[in-house]
Computed example of a mutant assay.
Amino acid sequence: MKNTENKLIIKAIKAIDKNGYQNLSLRKLTQSIGLTTGAFYKHFENKTILFQKVTSEISKEFINHAKIDDSLPAQEQILQIADYFVKQIKIHPNIMNFLFFNEEAVSALTKDSASYPFLKKIRTLIEQLNLKSSVSKQDFFIQIWSFIQGYAFLIKNGVTDYDPALVRTTLKQMMKKEK
């Protein structure tokens, strides 16, 4: 049972990477591993549940591949995450779009979910930076995260090229203002 679920999750990630999540066909997904669409529902209640599992898996992969150095201060770790994020948006735009904008990912932003290691890590780091600030945890998270996402999507859409020094300088300025 778990093996089939894992195959479906892996195939879904590959399909999303290639064509985007909006175009994910359950029929094509199940056929790719020799199942019927009806058999899909033996493993997942619906497409939303599949997307929850896929979001969780991509989140785990993201945080594992980002190679964050936990021995560095929170500010430096956030810079490592931002650097990895903006690079990934060019390499895997559909995956990054899914990870941060599918309905399940958006709803995860409103809760503190252990199912999303990437979200948990970035929230923890931002909270560490915000300990002495009068800005709420959520507002500080939104400020930092809005810049990272916005900049990454400008790069993805060809508006600008990636400049690691700009990311570093901007994030450091934002973090200083809040201290």
Rank of each mutant, 00 (worst) to 15 (best):
G150C: 01
V135H: 08
P117T: 12
S136C: 05
S71W: 00
P164Q: 14
S107H: 15
T4N: 09
T160I: 15
Q22M: 09
I155V: 04
D112Q: 10
N157A: 02
L79A: 07
N3F: 00
E103M: 12
A108W: 01
S71P: 00
M174F: 11
F101K: 12
S71H: 03
V135Q: 14
I68A: 08
L26I: 15
D112A: 08
H92P: 03
F147W: 08
I63Q: 02
K179F: 04
G158Q: 11
T48Y: 05
P93H: 02
Q77C: 12
E127I: 12
A39Q: 09
T55W: 01
F98K: 05
N130H: 05
Q22I: 06
Q138A: 09
G20E: 05
Q138R: 06
A15G: 12
D163F: 11
F44E: 09
I16C: 05
I78D: 04
A114H: 07
F40Y: 01
L35H: 00
T169G: 04
L154K: 15
L26N: 13
K132R: 09
K11F: 02
N94K: 15
A105Y: 06
N64C: 05
V167T: 13
N6I: 08
V106R: 14
I16G: 11
K28T: 04
L129R: 15
Q149M: 15
I122Q: 10
I144T: 08
F101C: 09
A108Y: 00
L72P: 04
S134C: 08
D163Y: 07
Q149E: 07
L131Q: 13
D70F: 08
R27H: 08
T124C: 09
K7W: 00
L99F: 07
T160R: 14
S56W: 05
K120L: 14
L24Y: 02
G150A: 03
A82R: 01
V54S: 13
T170K: 02
D83Q: 12
S59E: 08
M1S: 08
Q173F: 00
K7D: 00
S59D: 04
Y21M: 14
I142H: 11
L50H: 10
N46I: 02
T37K: 14
Q173W: 02
N23T: 11
G34V: 06
K120T: 12
P93E: 07
D17Y: 02
T48G: 07
I89G: 02
T36Q: 10
D70P: 10
M96R: 05
L79V: 12
F85H: 15
S134T: 09
A114G: 08
N6H: 11
I13T: 10
F141Y: 13
S32D: 06
Q143G: 02
Y84C: 11
N97C: 15
K90S: 14
S25A: 03
G34Y: 02
M1N: 06
T4P: 06
A114D: 11
R123A: 02
L119I: 08
K67I: 10
K11H: 13
K120E: 11
A82N: 06
S136D: 01
T36H: 04
F40M: 03
D69K: 09
I68T: 12
K90N: 14
Q138W: 02
Q75I: 10
E76D: 01
K179S: 07
K28I: 00
K176N: 09
S107K: 15
D83A: 12
